[in-house]
Design a protein around this nucleic acid. Sequence first.
DNA 1: GCTAAGTAAGTTGTGCGCAATTGAATTGTG
DNA 2: CACAATTCAATTGCGCACAACTTACTTAGC
Lengths: 144, 144
Amino acid sequence: MTEAPRLDRQVCFALYSASRAATAVYRPILDDLGLTYPQYLVMLVLWESEPRGVKDLGEELGLDSGTLSPLLKRLEALGFVERRRSGEDERRVAIHLTPAGRELSGKATGIPQHLADAAGLSAEELEQLRTTLGRLTEALHRSH
Amino acid sequence: MTEAPRLDRQVCFALYSASRAATAVYRPILDDLGLTYPQYLVMLVLWESEPRGVKDLGEELGLDSGTLSPLLKRLEALGFVERRRSGEDERRVAIHLTPAGRELSGKATGIPQHLADAAGLSAEELEQLRTTLGRLTEALHRSH
DNA sequence: GCTAAGTAAGTTGTGCGCAATTGAATTGTG
DNA sequence: CACAATTCAATTGCGCACAACTTACTTAGC
């Protein structure tokens, strides 16, 4: 008689729950900015450097055009982003920040601290968690 | 000049990436069973004890009826589950396993080991990760 | 017994995530 | 130059998540 795996023993479920709980903490804060969590991630990348192509964003975030294309249209409709066909390569769409999009960066400054406060873990534990998760993600991607 | 948060410093993004990478590893395996990852989670709960009400499942998994109702209908259409209105309380729908649903448990036995193998972490590291994630999820839920 | 409050499941609408396909533009090769 | 292969973004379709609402049923208070 083989035994069925137990839910509460699964790292995968722990990841899934923690991830949803974390975005749930971000949600009301991001609501004030008018962003969803994936939209916030895209803005984070653009605040670091822009303009960026769709594929470029996708590699940074691990998302494909099926997710990003409509998301970017919504960010454009919100006035945070502008999509311009590249002149050199007509296949590419360059995503530029608008002044409003650049401005939003200031309002977002304190957001990660909210999660840290809500996490109930020490700074070292958070740092170690982040490192372990990074290694895990790397290994899982390699295993394909 | 306030500084924008950096993507690669965010625990939240690390969680989000790791969670998606983990379900991506499960996907081809679960495809063989005909299940998606959330459907697999529901089956895990039912393999532990059934029948269970929708609300009951929802509390175990942190999902609401908006997610579970259609998911359970798909599991019923697949023949793994049966939904029966309770006689005592007509509001409740009891989710029962079918013989096929019970049988599936055997085929799922080895699945968590696949993730462990792909994770590139030691058993202790995985165990510690699971514990830390559990504490984190708890704290995040409490912080609401 | 009757109504008010509460509870369970379902429905609707929006926004991801991701596989698969399409269409346009570019590059590589002979 | 021609044309096949590749690349980029967009689109389609399906299945979650989750908020907000609806409907059916049950229970509590009077």
